[in-house]
Simulated scan of single mutants.
Amino acid sequence: MDLLTRLITFFAENGYLAVFMALLVCGIGAPIPEDVTLVAGGVIAGLGYANVHVMFAVTMLGVLVGDAGMFLAGHHYGVRLLHKRPLKWVLTPKRYCAVQKQFEQYGNRMLFTARFLPGMRTAVFVSAGLTHRVSFTRFLLLDGLAALISVPVWVYLGYFGADNHQWLLTWIHRGQTGLWIVLGVLVIGIGFYFWRRHKKRAERSSNASNSPD
């Protein structure tokens, strides 16, 4: 029995609380893929064991609470956290240095993109708390915006593919690529919006300076 099937069975028997707790465990770096957990939550909604919209709300809360917990743990315990299990297995000294370099190069954008990097989320979120470079409010905003893209994709994918296991597995494998495409389109769209806004402001300023007194 594969992991997805085991999670579906477990969630169907135990409901929303089981999904929420599983996501908290994912947040601390347990070897359970968050994406598969979200899909399993969507599947049990598609099979009639839960309401899909409530499931979306529960999974969003579970993801954000788990991520916030890792950020606050890093913020409160500092480098001592690097020596505590299971974090010391997830955030090795080598990985911590790599994440720090990414923060120096990309800043807050690293927090946003971390949600789309399986295996790196916990390391990035703990590092963000450790460095004290980002306020908790900014962290929650950036992570929440990223989660609003990724979480519904996985949950509703599970919901619509609940009756077709093979189709679902195919799209789970394609899903991460699809998320990057969605993210790319979103970034391009936002960039274009701000470029047009800046251009219009520049034109208004130019017209105002050239107008006769």
Score class of each variant (00 low, 15 high):
174 R>H: 12
4 L>H: 07
136 F>C: 05
213 D>N: 11
120 M>V: 13
124 V>C: 10
155 V>F: 02
202 A>V: 08
113 T>L: 15
104 E>D: 15
32 I>M: 03
74 G>D: 06
181 I>G: 08
3 L>A: 10
74 G>W: 01
200 K>W: 09
47 L>F: 01
66 G>R: 03
172 I>S: 01
108 N>Y: 13
132 H>E: 09
69 G>L: 10
160 F>G: 09
84 K>T: 04
175 G>C: 10
89 W>A: 12
83 H>I: 00
45 A>T: 06
79 V>E: 15
181 I>S: 05
208 A>R: 13
206 S>F: 11
58 V>L: 12
24 L>G: 04
91 L>R: 05
21 M>S: 12
105 Q>N: 13
70 M>E: 11
51 N>V: 05
121 R>M: 07
5 T>R: 14
187 V>H: 09
107 G>D: 12
65 V>L: 14
12 A>T: 08
111 L>M: 14
8 I>G: 08
1 M>S: 12
90 V>G: 01
12 A>H: 07
74 G>M: 03
36 V>Q: 01
25 V>L: 14
139 F>T: 06
92 T>L: 07
81 L>H: 02
191 G>Q: 12
44 I>L: 10
161 G>S: 06
151 V>P: 10
141 L>C: 11
45 A>M: 02
80 R>H: 13
40 A>D: 01
109 R>E: 01
117 L>R: 07
201 R>H: 12
27 G>W: 04
165 H>R: 15
